[in-house]
């Protein structure tokens, strides 16, 4: 990709996160380049959400370092990190009882936007996800796919450089998934850096330049999609080869 903005958007070094005795994220390191789209793949419980939580400033790391645009997160740097990162949470993060517009007005307001700027950002975010016409409707009247799209719009208001998307397409029909995909491609073309998790290998093949495959809190592979496809035939085979065929929910125990 020919880009004037080069260098690392995100640098992660030896990041660790524990819940009691369980190590959710185990000393991982990786970089994401500006404008790159990276898939974070892994079975249930691999540590994807925990990783994104630390990258978005929601959860503190037990150890390790995060640099966003070369600035270290933590202390005063934490606010800077939060301003340049947009998080799309895995669970729908919307007030069902309020309209789409009111939801986005809150999320924009939390980022420090107000007045005409806020109104403009709310409208452009809704337009991008194709919900401008439904702006005044209560979220509880939306379909699952529409909620997912609004969930993405909620992270766009402050026009963040880095977007962290936690399973943005989970539980929606193929049409809605395609719509979401189109949205993500627009974002990617617009120069945003995307780090997103999914269980759908096809999605990752279609959208990502590179994937990180994670399991048990560790990164097992960090490679361009093309290379993994060349080595294993397709991404799914690569995934199963690296993470094994065992069922995950059964072995949730203290390591």
């Amino acid at each position: 990709m020919a880009s004037v903005t080069t260098g690392n958007m995100l640098e992660v070094m030896n990041l660790t996160r524990r819940y009691g005795a369980r190590v959710a994220v185990d000393c991982i390191s990786f970089n994401v380049q500006r404008g790159e789209c990276v898939g974070l793949l892994g079975p249930n419980g691999a540590g994807k959400t925990s990783t994104l939580a630390m990258l978005s400033g929601i959860a503190a790391a037990d150890s390790g370092q995060i640099l966003v645009s070369g600035v270290e997160a933590g202390g005063a740097g934490m606010l800077a990190l939060k301003r340049s990162v947009g998080l799309v949470p895995q669970d729908l993060a919307l007030f069902d009882e309020l309209s789409a517009r009111f939801n986005l007005e809150l999320f924009g307001g939390l980022q420090g936007l107000s007045g005409p700027v806020l109104e403009e950002r709310v409208l452009s975010s809704l337009t991008l996800v194709g919900l401008a016409e439904r702006a005044g409707d209560l979220v509880k009247t939306f379909s699952g796919g529409m909620k997912r799209r609004l969930n993405i719009a909620g992270a766009l208001l402050h026009d963040p450089e880095l977007m962290l998307l936690d399973e943005p397409t989970v539980g929606v029909d193929p049409q809605s998934r395609n719509a979401i995909f189109d949205n993500l491609e627009v974002l990617k073309r617009g120069g945003k850096t995307l780090l997103y998790t999914t269980h759908y290998m096809g999605e990752a093949e279609r959208l990502c330049d590179r994937v990180l495959i994670m399991d048990h809190g560790r990164i097992l592979a960090d490679a361009p999609v093309q290379r993994l496809k060349a080595d294993h035939g397709n991404l799914e085979q690569a995934f199963l080869h690296l993470t094994g065929r065992d069922l995950r929910d059964a072995e949730e125990g203290v390591k």
Binding site: A53, I58, L87, A93, L110, Q111
Partner: peptide, 10 residues
């Protein structure tokens, strides 16, 4: 999930 969104704000 809303809590995460609020916590992710500056």
């Amino acid at each position: 999930g809303l809590w995460q969104r609020i916590r992710a704000a500056p």
